[in-house]
C-alpha cells in the first residue's frame, strides 16, 4: 500500500499556518503603529499562495499552498480582531506603542496585563482577583 502524503501535508500546513499566523499577528500587532500595512502584506501573501495553488498541477503542492494561503488571508483580518481584543482588555496593550498608548488612554477596559497568563483555578474568577493573580505571578518571576 502506498502512503498518501497529502493528508499529512494538509494537516501540517493547517497546523503550522494557524500557529505561525497566531503568533505573528500577536507580535506584529503589538509593535506596529499602523496595522494597515501588515494586513495588506498578509492578504497579498495569501493571494499569492492561492494563485500558486491554482497554477500547480500537483495536488500535494496545490493543497498545501491553498491551505497556507487561506490562513494568511484570515490573518489579514485577525489584525483588526486583535486590536479589538486590546480595546476590550482581552489581550495586553503595549504602552510603548503609540497606537496602544492611545487605546489605553481612551478605553478604561484596556490593560497592560495578560489576564490569560496563569493556570486555571476551576472556578469563576472576578476582575479584581484576576488582576491580583497576574500581579502576584509577575512578582514571583
Amino acid at each position: 500500500m502506498i502512503f498518501n502524503y497529502l493528508g499529512l501535508a494538509a494537516g501540517l500546513a493547517a497546523f503550522l499556518g494557524i500557529w505561525i499566523g497566531h503568533v505573528a499577528v500577536r507580535e506584529i500587532e503589538c509593535r506596529v503603529v499602523s496595522i494597515t500595512l501588515p494586513s495588506i502584506g498578509f492578504a497579498l501573501l495569501g493571494f499569492l499562495c492561492e494563485i500558486g495553488a491554482f497554477l500547480s498541477a500537483s495536488n500535494l503542492v496545490s493543497g498545501t499552498l491553498g491551505i497556507l494561503g487561506m490562513t494568511f488571508l484570515w490573518d489579514a483580518l485577525e489584525f483588526h480582531r486583535q486590536q479589538k481584543r486590546i480595546v476590550k482588555g482581552r489581550a495586553p496593550a503595549n504602552p510603548a506603542n503609540p497606537r496602544h498608548a492611545r487605546i489605553l488612554a481612551e478605553y478604561p477596559t484596556a490593560t497592560t496585563l495578560d489576564l490569560l497568563k496563569r493556570e486555571p483555578l476551576g472556578r469563576p474568577v472576578g476582575a479584581q482577583e484576576a488582576i491580583a493573580l497576574i500581579k502576584a505571578k509577575e512578582k514571583l518571576l
Binding site: F3, L6, A14
Partner: peptide, 23 residues
C-alpha cells in the same frame, strides 16, 4: 487522524482527514 489520512487513497478525503486532525 493525521497518520490515518496517509492510508486514505482519495486525495479529498485524505486532505480533509489531515486538516481535521490538525484542528
Amino acid at each position: 487522524l493525521m497518520v490515518t489520512s496517509g492510508f486514505i487513497k482519495n486525495d479529498w478525503c485524505s486532505a480533509l482527514a489531515g486538516v481535521i486532525g490538525a484542528s
